[in-house]
Design a protein around this nucleic acid. Sequence first.
DNA 1: CTGAAAGCGCTTACAG
DNA 2: CTGAAAGCGCTTACAG
Lengths: 339, 339
Amino acid sequence: MHPPRPTILDVAQRARVSVGTVSNVLNGTIRVGEQRRLRVLKAIEDLGYSQNLLAQGLRKRRSTMVGLCVPHTSNAYFAALVNIFEEIASDRGFELLQVLSRQDPKKEFERVQALLRYNVGGLILVPSLAPDNTLKLIAQSGTPLVVVDRPVRPERYDQVTFDNRSAMLEATRRLIALGHRHIHFIVRQKALLVTRHRIEGLVEAARKAPAKVTTAVFECADEVSLTAHLSTELRKAYPPSAIIVSNSIFAAWTLRALHTLKVNYPGDVSLLAFDEPEWADLVTPRLSVVRQPTDAIARRAWEFLIRRMTHEFDGAQREQLKAEVIFRESIEPVTRRAR
Amino acid sequence: MHPPRPTILDVAQRARVSVGTVSNVLNGTIRVGEQRRLRVLKAIEDLGYSQNLLAQGLRKRRSTMVGLCVPHTSNAYFAALVNIFEEIASDRGFELLQVLSRQDPKKEFERVQALLRYNVGGLILVPSLAPDNTLKLIAQSGTPLVVVDRPVRPERYDQVTFDNRSAMLEATRRLIALGHRHIHFIVRQKALLVTRHRIEGLVEAARKAPAKVTTAVFECADEVSLTAHLSTELRKAYPPSAIIVSNSIFAAWTLRALHTLKVNYPGDVSLLAFDEPEWADLVTPRLSVVRQPTDAIARRAWEFLIRRMTHEFDGAQREQLKAEVIFRESIEPVTRRAR
DNA sequence: CTGAAAGCGCTTACAG
DNA sequence: CTGAAAGCGCTTACAG
């Protein structure tokens, strides 16, 4: 019913050349005589030929697909990353084979394993909390890898991350300058390296503050526990005047909780969120955020990957980009009354 | 440096069987003697063998990858779709080769073409505004296809969409019941089939209303023109008391515009949006929405695709799912004063 | 520069 | 049930 796709052999026959010659004009590695070249081009045009990339990948032992493994797509930041990667990849003649680890190290391992079965030419990984096995698997396969967003221990991996410590340092410092003396940081996983770096910044800013500043870090798994936590803390005699949350999902939950609890927000409590959600400046008051340099991260990661794929570079490539701390109406100075 | 991946030949030799036998235990099509089967399994285990899916795809002339083409990922609804598709696909042993059309028919064509070069086993397409060439291309290739979300003309394609007409009918009816008599609908493209169906619902509800109801449809391309439009219309002697926007991006723009224009919202004008954005119930007042049955759409689409891939079904498969109309605080009844 | 041929790692008739 | 062999559509040394 459907005519089979023309192959390189069809092109060769129509152009009266060998398949090797067709391959050479296609890949442009070796110069082909002008007349034959034109004949081949014409044949390709006539037949509507396009390469079978499965065959090419098999023969070259590496496909033009790049594997992309992110925790999920519901986070606006990850979605933006995928968006940029797809653009870069397609411009460069690559396709994205995308899998989701759903924050689960075991699933991450399996999904990456699936990617490797396709001999992907490269791999971009936003690691889960415990990516060690996955990293080992990738290293064994010899597949070029770049780790994005969340730094990972062995220093030998190519990584592009952003500087969580200094972003948090700056944010906290500015909160303190506005009179905040009791700051809570709500996180998903204390053990996560990203989180640890943020806590370092938080603690350092508090330590260096001109006044006494109390900080606390809380782990939350879901909306219920987060709401419960806020409910308890905000009713204490000495409640936090500022809350920092580690991602945009938590920001959403917190907003809902503050509403439910009928907290005077942002009058009594200020809010700052990592991971700028797209709705940050749609809500009232507009949400203050730490904005990751998504675009720069993606572009640099791709650069690293290409260099690794073409063996242009040997040593570990690492780069830490600066994040932008943006205070908006969700943060207010602490008035004497509120203290 | 990196030991090459073991091949089926390595497994065969270690298990002292032929490669065909290994293939048979792997694919389970033909029964293999128990002892050999165990030997093969052991060899696979020992070697850490996994199939080269590029080779398999080449030989079978169809890979276990499914192409997914959506307009972009920044829309929460599309992101959710991708999320579900990835889950289903990976559970079934498929990978997702994802491309973005960026709403551009030409880019859509090129990106789908790229997908076809990999001999994807199936294709899921959320079509652009003018997908005809792309659809033709896919049809020619004989690749199983299911069109999602936006219905498309030739009735022969498998499609799972949702019922825009009846969703709009219900929404408008309810607005009218709340006293709204002048309703504006802001869209991206009047020509889009989805839009036309919505307009049908709008017009029908108005026609059947117990009182005289005026409706109007406006096309908008960007935030500036949308803001200008609202500015003009809301200052007229007989301004709309309710605005319906056709997607979540427009909802965001409208919200900003209402704020800028210092409109008494939702007192003087109510707002309803198609495409539930994730921030819908974070804003104040909470946004009223028409919620697509994302999960059901994805699952049904996958079902259609598998059936098509396994040739279990011949005729065109079509399903139209019901959307949910959710009124929240962004919609208020019209008071006599306001009329 | 060009062609003939080997081979990438699988699956699938085809004999036995 | 099992093995030997052809072939999927390419690329890449290898001669010439």
